[in-house]
Amino acid sequence: MRNLPESWIHRIAAELRRPVRLDEEFDRGVMDAVRAMPRHRQRPWTRMLRARTITVSPVVSGIAAALLLAVALSAGHFISAVRANRATGRIDVATDRSGGTKPGPRRSVQFVLVAPTARKVQLVGDFNDWDGSHQEYHAQHRGGGVWSVTAAIPEGHHRYSFVVDDSLWVADPSAPRVLDDDYGVPNSAIVVGGGDATQ
């Protein structure tokens, strides 16, 4: 090609650029031959698996990403919530430190404190979330400085104390003290009932 003169190259190029016209019979013959060939049927998944180019605008792709993120986070939360639900469900039913709203068999227990100068005595403990504001935990003055309260306490081992005049914490002198110095104020211990599962 390098030895050909320039004019020849131009003539060859012009000849190649010239449109080729085939007669209509030829076109029809080719198309008939194509139609006569057995059809290649595409299966549904073949079409889905076939690689293709999709054009998506930045806005749509952003929305799609947000959608995927939301679905993933929701699924994560759902799984963790179900797991936590299972865990707490197993624990809460069996727990023995019960307050007023907790399940379990209860027994009436009388608590007595001698406090001649007291104006108010409340019973607090792990059975009422250490909150003696409920009326059923208010001790009644029986005269002679004797205060008593009878409360329904869940079976099990409990820690409790008396609160005198809303400020002074007093352990029950008639009950053993708990070796629990976390807060520097002593508690008393009581075992209500003796229920335990045996085989």
């Binding site: 865990a87 707490t88 197993r90 624990i91 809460d92 069996a94 727990t95 430190r97 307050g99 907790k102 607090v124 792990d126 979330d129 250490w130 909150d131 820690r159 914490w169 976390d182 807060y183 520097g184 104020v185």
Partner: peptide, 19 residues
């Protein structure tokens, strides 16, 4: 999967005792 109630109870005890 440890019991949670004793922990809450311990915290409430401290709060009531003014710790």
């Amino acid at each position: 999967r440890l019991p949670t109630e004793p922990l809450v109870d311990k915290a409430l005890e401290g709060a009531q005792k003014g710790a």
